[in-house]
């Protein structure tokens, strides 16, 4: 009798607990978005009006229009896509190759390389970025071209600062933004693949590249989606490297970070720009996260499913 009662109680309580938990959690997570939305839709009058708590009395989309002007949205968006998104995809593609080499083959110095990988994950980008910029100004690989310059006087070192190459090159070599982390995630997954997978392909006479592209990649959608989501999101939000590498083609994240400054730049103090700092930043922020939330919504189905299967666990 008592056990039955307890069981009934359990059956009854756990859904309630679940619902309460979910509701509380959704509230916490959506609170900032709602708050931003509420602020973004207000007119200046509504900010002063103490009776306006959440729902604005005078709806307006003016803040969004102003935000688009202040952020120079079209161009900044394009910069984000051509600089950050492309290098995000390059990272997803190339890190997988290096992780495959590190996890599925045995060779000398492999342990050392994995140790180096962990050190790289721990290294703050700030430490590397100034010397890297120096290097990009006269691109050189291990001083070969510099030596050539000293010997012959012909300077072959190109200045690639200000070109997209500053973003692409590190990504291609797997040392771009969070590249170490991506290699690590891929490695953990590749380690778990059965050895028969490759052996069969080897016996059938497929070369390593063909094995990789036709056998390994098709059976690795899970880590690829995981890395893809992280890579896109982190690159989208990256302002630090962009700030260091470019001064002209600023991506959205950089503009977003100094939005107040841009509001004053485009509207001017005399035109009441100071009144705009209430409504425009939240509007700009919503515009900034909208595309990445869109991408996430599109990928999340695969993403959440893939978490169920990805073996990020050693």
């Amino acid at each position: 009798m008592r056990v039955k009662l307890l069981n009934n109680l359990k059956r009854f309580i756990s859904p309630i607990f679940m619902i309460v938990f979910m509701a509380a959690f959704t509230y916490i997570l959506f609170y900032p978005v709602l708050y931003m939305l509420s602020n973004a839709l207000r007119t200046t009058v509504d900010y002063i009006d103490p009776t306006v708590q959440w729902v604005p009395k005078n709806f307006t989309l003016q803040n969004f229009k102003d935000a688009i002007v202040a952020m120079n949205f079209g161009e900044s968006f394009l910069n984000t896509v051509t600089l950050e998104m492309v290098s995000a995809l390059l990272s997803v593609f190339f890190c997988a190759i290096y992780a495959y080499g590190l996890s599925r083959f045995n060779f000398r110095f492999k342990k050392l390389l994995i140790f180096v990988l962990i050190l790289i994950i721990m290294l703050p980008d700030v430490m590397l970025v100034i010397p890297r910029v120096e290097n990009f100004q006269h691109l050189d690989f291990l001083g070969v071209l510099g030596l050539f310059d000293k010997l012959t006087g012909i300077d072959l070192r190109p200045n690639i600062m200000g070109t997209p190459l500053t973003f692409y090159l590190p990504s291609i070599f797997g040392v771009g933004l969070k590249g170490g982390m991506f290699i690590f995630i891929y490695m953990q997954f590749f380690k778990g693949l059965p050895a028969e997978l490759e052996e069969a392909a080897w016996i059938d006479g497929a070369g390593p590249l063909r094995t990789y592209f036709q056998i390994i990649i098709p059976s690795s959608t899970t880590p690829i989606v995981t890395v893809l989501v992280f890579s896109l999101v982190w690159h989208w939000n990256d302002y630090f490297l962009a700030l260091m590498y470019t001064t002209e083609n600023l991506p959205l994240a950089v503009v977003m970070r100094d939005i107040q400054q841009y509001i004053f730049l485009s509207f001017g103090e005399a035109n009441g720009a100071s009144a705009l700092i209430f409504g425009v930043p939240p509007a700009a922020c919503l515009l900034f996260i909208a595309p990445i939330v869109g991408i996430y919504m599109f990928l999340q189905k695969y993403f959440v499913e893939s978490i169920d299967r990805v073996g990020i666990v050693g």
Partner: peptide, 21 residues
């Protein structure tokens, strides 16, 4: 083959991480 797969990364680490470091 394993080394060939990893070689570009090692190159990248040397040029873009080790030298700046």
């Amino acid at each position: 083959y394993g080394m060939a797969f990893v070689a570009p990364w090692v190159f990248g680490v040397i040029v873009f991480v080790l030298v700046p470091l």
